[in-house]
Simulated scan of single mutants.
Amino acid sequence: MNERIVVAPRRSDGRPRSRDAARVGVLRRIAAAKLKHHGLDMLINDVLLISSELLTNALLHSGTTEFTLNLTVRSGCLRIAVIDDMPGRAELREIDNEAETGRGLRLVEVLAEQSGGTWGTSEDGAATWCSLPVPTGQRQ
């Protein structure tokens, strides 16, 4: 699955426009439908959280006006990738307990580790991805 969305240029205050934030929700619903169609229901909750965090990270930090959500199953793993074609790697930040933001990639890391998967960014930073094992017995 490859789904691309176009968003407005980032505002000076860094906040996304509400219609652009809503597009993240649309991609989540499309991803859920695709997973269900392919018999991967057991992964829907984790994939929706991971894709939401990766998409929101791209929306808030990449500065791009379009990005793609890609879901691919290969070699027993589901790979979730958000491609923004912008340089700069997504990195975990140290945050304090009072911070209101900054936990998204930590959530992605924890979900990946709990399932035996992994996450990372492409060499050029244009894509951030997470790979989750497909549970045994699930259709692909």
Score class of each variant (00 low, 15 high):
residue 87 P to V: 14
residue 103 R to W: 14
residue 86 M to Y: 12
residue 84 D to Y: 05
residue 74 R to N: 07
residue 103 R to N: 12
residue 97 N to L: 15
residue 100 E to G: 07
residue 105 L to A: 04
residue 83 I to Y: 07
residue 70 N to A: 15
residue 64 T to F: 06
residue 89 R to N: 04
residue 59 L to D: 03
residue 62 S to Y: 08
residue 57 N to L: 06
residue 59 L to V: 04
residue 73 V to M: 01
residue 98 E to C: 11
residue 82 V to M: 05
residue 67 F to C: 00
residue 60 L to Q: 05
residue 78 L to R: 00
residue 74 R to S: 06
residue 65 T to D: 06
residue 79 R to F: 10
residue 80 I to E: 01
residue 78 L to A: 01
residue 56 T to H: 04
residue 82 V to R: 00
residue 63 G to E: 04
residue 56 T to M: 14
residue 61 H to F: 15
residue 67 F to N: 02
residue 76 G to H: 06
residue 89 R to Y: 12
residue 66 E to F: 10
residue 88 G to W: 10
residue 98 E to D: 13
residue 71 L to W: 02
residue 87 P to Y: 14
residue 81 A to R: 03
residue 69 L to K: 02
residue 75 S to I: 15
residue 57 N to F: 12
residue 91 E to V: 13
residue 82 V to S: 01
residue 66 E to M: 09
residue 89 R to S: 07
residue 88 G to Q: 06
residue 62 S to P: 03
residue 57 N to P: 02
residue 65 T to F: 09
residue 82 V to Q: 03
residue 97 N to F: 14
residue 79 R to A: 10
residue 67 F to Y: 07
residue 73 V to I: 10
residue 66 E to L: 06
residue 93 R to N: 09
residue 86 M to I: 14
residue 67 F to R: 03
residue 61 H to D: 04
residue 103 R to P: 06
residue 61 H to N: 07
residue 88 G to S: 07
residue 71 L to I: 12
residue 64 T to Q: 03
residue 86 M to H: 10
residue 65 T to H: 04
residue 63 G to N: 05
residue 78 L to P: 03
residue 58 A to H: 02
residue 82 V to I: 06
residue 76 G to W: 14
residue 79 R to Q: 10
residue 73 V to N: 01
residue 90 A to N: 07
residue 92 L to V: 09
residue 78 L to W: 01
residue 80 I to P: 00
residue 62 S to T: 09
residue 85 D to A: 11
residue 75 S to D: 13
residue 85 D to I: 12
residue 82 V to A: 03
residue 77 C to A: 13
residue 101 T to W: 13
residue 61 H to M: 08
residue 85 D to Y: 13
residue 59 L to E: 03
residue 104 G to D: 00
residue 58 A to T: 06
residue 81 A to L: 10
residue 58 A to L: 05
residue 97 N to D: 13
residue 70 N to K: 11
residue 91 E to M: 13
residue 66 E to P: 00
residue 71 L to D: 02
residue 94 E to I: 15
residue 89 R to D: 08
residue 69 L to G: 00
residue 60 L to T: 07
residue 93 R to G: 12
residue 95 I to H: 01
residue 56 T to D: 05
residue 95 I to Q: 02
residue 91 E to T: 11
residue 77 C to G: 07
residue 58 A to Q: 04
residue 101 T to A: 12
residue 71 L to F: 04
residue 93 R to F: 15
residue 64 T to I: 08
residue 95 I to C: 04
residue 87 P to K: 10
residue 93 R to K: 15
residue 96 D to Y: 08
residue 80 I to Y: 01
residue 72 T to R: 05
residue 66 E to K: 03
residue 90 A to F: 14
residue 88 G to L: 08
residue 81 A to W: 10
residue 73 V to F: 04
residue 101 T to H: 12
residue 68 T to P: 02
residue 101 T to N: 10
residue 98 E to A: 10
residue 74 R to M: 08
residue 92 L to F: 07
residue 70 N to I: 15
residue 77 C to I: 14
residue 84 D to N: 01
residue 80 I to C: 00
residue 85 D to G: 10
residue 101 T to S: 11
residue 80 I to T: 00
residue 74 R to F: 12
residue 65 T to A: 09
residue 94 E to L: 15
residue 72 T to C: 08
residue 60 L to H: 01
residue 99 A to L: 06
residue 97 N to H: 12
residue 71 L to T: 01
residue 87 P to N: 03
residue 96 D to M: 14
residue 70 N to Q: 14
